[in-house]
Design a protein around this nucleic acid. Sequence first.
DNA 1: AAAAACTATGAACGCCATACACAGTAGGCC
DNA 2: GGCCTACTGTGTATGGCGTTCATAGTTTTT
Lengths: 249, 249
Amino acid sequence: MAQERSLPPVVQRMWGREPMPRRGPRPRLDLDTITTAAIEIADAEGMAAVSMSGVASRVGVAATALYRYVDSKEDLLTAMADAVAPEPPDPAGMHWRDYLALWTRAHRDLILQHAWVLSITVYAPPMGPRRLLWLDRAIAALAGTGLDDGEKINVASTLTGYALTDAALEHTAKLGFPELEGSGIEGASDYGEVLAEVLDPEAYPALAAAVRSGAFGGAEGWVEDADFRFGLDLLLDGVERLIARRQPR
Amino acid sequence: MAQERSLPPVVQRMWGREPMPRRGPRPRLDLDTITTAAIEIADAEGMAAVSMSGVASRVGVAATALYRYVDSKEDLLTAMADAVAPEPPDPAGMHWRDYLALWTRAHRDLILQHAWVLSITVYAPPMGPRRLLWLDRAIAALAGTGLDDGEKINVASTLTGYALTDAALEHTAKLGFPELEGSGIEGASDYGEVLAEVLDPEAYPALAAAVRSGAFGGAEGWVEDADFRFGLDLLLDGVERLIARRQPR
DNA sequence: AAAAACTATGAACGCCATACACAGTAGGCC
DNA sequence: GGCCTACTGTGTATGGCGTTCATAGTTTTT
């Protein structure tokens, strides 16, 4: 209590609490139109194309005008990361497991549709209204399972992390590896060939064997979504087992 | 086969294949000393302090000299991400579950000790010798479980992602949230208070209830590592169940 | 009508990654 | 031994970036 505790301006604006100035000209913008413009740029041209001046010119102001609404570019990025999230799916009447599977998949698809999210540190605990709504729905879905609130939050965090991980993997698997651009190596199966070329079977016995057996084969035997469902089921099995432990009937 | 397929220079250098020039002056550097210098800077002052000129002046050359060893800063970053990894723990004689728990924990601790890793896209499939060695050990630990190679790799990927997720969470929980710097909000429990202030219980019923019940309490009832072990056990339970399905005896 | 409060602007700063021409160096070859 | 050639590190330069600051302009209050 020794220190003034107030939310930073951006957080307030994220929650729609735009300060209404009593005097002076009306603001021409609000945080929403700014983040929307930034998101459009990121969607179209990638995160690298998002610059303060770029966003500013898209909304029709000078670059420096943005700093009336955002303290730094960092702020803008976190606002973007919240604003991309749509409404979460509705858990009404669904079994927790079905819902969480749907929820995690939707989360992953969301990230894949806006892959630039991966280049923001999404790991920071959510502060914005939309991501918190997702969290709320996940917790709600776990009502009646016997888990305590802390456990519910942990489950949601773990699933969020999994959605991120899988989205990132799928993204690089589809679009190729940035490091290998222009080297003729493009897909996941080529990745395997690279490994085969570089790996010393004595130093990397298990991995070399896996590569030789074609575990990175890619196209052949590829089932849409198989990898995602694999890990997801792993996690949900774990949750189910935890719930069973909490309700031993 | 239509295209020349050759590894990019950095990848070759990561694997110790430094080109030995036949003529001209001997190179004063190699990739290793460069990445070592960069890592020292990142460890001491954070990723933001890693600039080409900074790294260059630390190794005693002009900034542009680095481009003889690295095609771009991106390249340097991926080399760094590989070079921080120490030797993985030795799986000899351990049960797969014990080893993977140890492995994942070591992985997380590694990231926490070099938190700047989180600001690199670590999601790209590993190409460097050290991270691939970690992957090799995880696969090796799963020998004799009846999983096929693809499944083993998926397990390792999922655990890697979990280590990342948890490291990021723990990092921000300890050091506070960058967005809230200078606002008097510092730990995880303050985070809960912020949420309480901002959340509308009607729009966020489950989350608001969790917050009120003190699920973000932080210090009280905090057990070292509890959150990490929670998710890890979730995952390993899932793996165990999968293995049981593969070997139904 | 004047003052006060607030907005957007334009110019400027420092930093960064990177391109390019050049100077210096050292092995290969006659 | 001396030239050629390939290669390394340097210096300079460029364009872009995020951000600061003083200023001009606009609207409300008094």
